[in-house]
Design a binder for these strands. Structure first.
Length: 472
DNA sequence: TGAAATGTTGGGGCG
DNA sequence: ACGCCCCAACATTTC
């Protein structure tokens, strides 16, 4: 009877899981093991919101394995040492896993694979939840892509809406005593701040597919228009599910092409626009793989000595807490704090405000997002912040400064998003809602803060700093 | 996946 | 009928 360990990390699903399917096909029994090893993630150990999600996603996967007669074997500590201990105690002869592509993880897994094989243990890694692995695409010159559009043109032509792997039907699961309980991993917050998260999300594979169904039923049609409106659920909201590997891009692609033809004709701009967003996720993985220093330093060398303002804790605190006095910024930051998520357009606006109007370093923002987003993903977070800050590959030019007032007027015309997240302004008339500082009485009555900075003047300051850095 | 400043055009009011 | 001005709408440039 040969047993294989399935070393789970961020592939918390049963379906479309090449490592699991291979382990089932080649071995009689599979023992699922999760090892909590945040110390192996370097400077980017999972944040609080991410750990919350992880707890519930593990609970969901454990329930699924229990229905198959097994359970997740949980550990905490050094990954390789734990694997060796589990191997010894279970008599397993092989380890299977799905690849992750962050720099620190790749290195850890490379060492683990070598160490296992050295001991005569089979070690097999399989593609992660991605359309293409980050090293697969290259320009005609053989270089990594640095610009999204050519990357996407290449990738898009390779996509086929083929049927994803089913969950294995003959899964025999091994059990091993002596693991930790989920509670002992201590992933949940010690104080009860996660009510908003519980309300907004259903982590786990079943929740992921439910969300996909909601999206294909309601939101794909009209996506191009509706995705920009933060008051509406016009986006897929699949990002945390994708991050934890509860669902794969291939499953999504297949679902989108299996939809009712009347509602999504063969050539659907809505569907293509959404696939393009998944393309950005692939592009982020590609960039981080080829340029691993990007998590800490500007991608664009021109920004190596950019004059960011010194970190200002008072400013940062007001930004984090959603008390900048700029309605769209504050609404976004409060949505983030409450739900662990923020609408993407608003992410761009709050990031532009932090890096341009406040001229704080993008890493300050990236770290806060890292701690508070349920979909915090190193590749996406790095690319997104550097894109907005203007120092990234294929970035928005530095002088592209979002005006949070005109963005709100354009994308939250009725002010529904602002009112939802800014209860002190909920009764303000629309005319004052977008620029509450125009009415001193409103500020006094509502307790809503005066703006931290003047938008026009701080924009000018940012542009001037940019000019100086170009000259220097 | 920008915004503001500047330039151009054309319709309409008016003398 | 004509030139002139105003200004909104749109286009282009600049940061």
């Amino acid at each position: 009877m040969s047993t294989a360990i399935l070393w789970l990390r961020r592939d918390l699903r049963l379906a479309d899981h090449p490592a699991l399917s291979a382990a089932c096909a080649r071995h009689e029994r599979v023992l699922p093991v999760y090892i909590h090893a945040p110390q192996e993630d370097g400077a980017w150990a999972p944040g609080a919101a991410s750990r919350w999600w992880l707890h519930h996603s593990l609970a969901s996967l454990d329930a699924a394995w229990r229905r198959l007669g097994g359970e997740l074997h949980l550990r905490r500590g050094e990954s390789l040492a734990m694997l060796l201990d589990v191997l010894e105690r279970s008599g397993a002869t092989a380890v299977y896993w799905s690849r992750l592509y962050e720099p620190a993880t790749l290195e850890r897994d490379r060492l683990a694979k070598a160490a296992l094989r050295e001991r005569g243990i089979e070690a097999h890694s399989f593609p992660g939840a991605t359309w293409c692995e980050p090293w697969q695409l290259a320009t005609k010159q053989g270089d990594p892509y640095r610009v999204f559009t050519p990357f996407w043109r290449n990738l898009r032509t390779q996509l086929e809406a083929s049927v994803p792997l089913p969950a294995p039907s003959t899964l025999r699961t091994a059990r091993l005593t002596g693991g930790l309980t989920l509670k002992a991993l201590a992933l949940l917050p010690r104080i009860d701040w996660d009510a908003g998260l519980r309300e907004a999300w259903r982590p786990g594979e079943a929740g992921a597919h439910e969300q996909l169904e909601v999206f294909t039923d309601d939101a794909v049609a009209g996506y191009v228009e509706a995705r920009d409106l933060p008051a509406r659920h016009g986006t897929s909201r699949l990002s945390p599910h994708l991050h934890f590997g509860e669902i794969t891009p291939q499953q999504i692609l297949h679902a989108l092409f299996s939809m009712d033809r009347r509602r999504t004709p063969k050539e659907s701009p809505d569907r293509e626009a959404f696939l393009r967003e998944l393309g950005w996720r692939e592009f982020a993985q590609h960039l981080l793989y080829h340029f691993p220093h990007a998590t800490e330093g500007a991608f664009n060398p021109r920004f190596a000595h950019f004059p960011w303002a010194p970190a200002d804790e008072a400013l940062l605190r007001r930004w984090r807490e959603g008390r900048t006095g700029i309605p769209l910024v504050d609404a976004g930051m409060r949505e983030l704090w409450h739900t662990g998520w923020m609408h993407n357009r608003v992410r761009m606006v709050v990031a532009s405000f932090l890096t341009k109007n406040l001229r704080q370093h993008w890493l300050e923002g990236a770290r806060w997002f890292w701690d508070t987003l349920v979909d915090a993903d190193l590749a996406n977070n790095t690319l997104g912040w550097q894109w907005v800050a203007g120092c990234g590959a294929d970035a928005a030019p530095y002088f592209r400064v979002f005006n949070p007032v005109s963005q709100a007027q354009k994308f939250d015309v009725q002010g529904n998003y602002l009112r939802r997240w800014l209860p002190e302004l909920a009764d303000a008339p629309l005319a004052q809602l977008h620029e509450p500082w125009r009415d001193a009485g409103l500020l006094a009555r509502s307790g809503y803060p005066a703006p931290l900075v003047d938008l026009a003047a701080s924009r000018q300051d940012a542009l001037a700093a940019y000019q100086r850095s170009r000259a220097g």
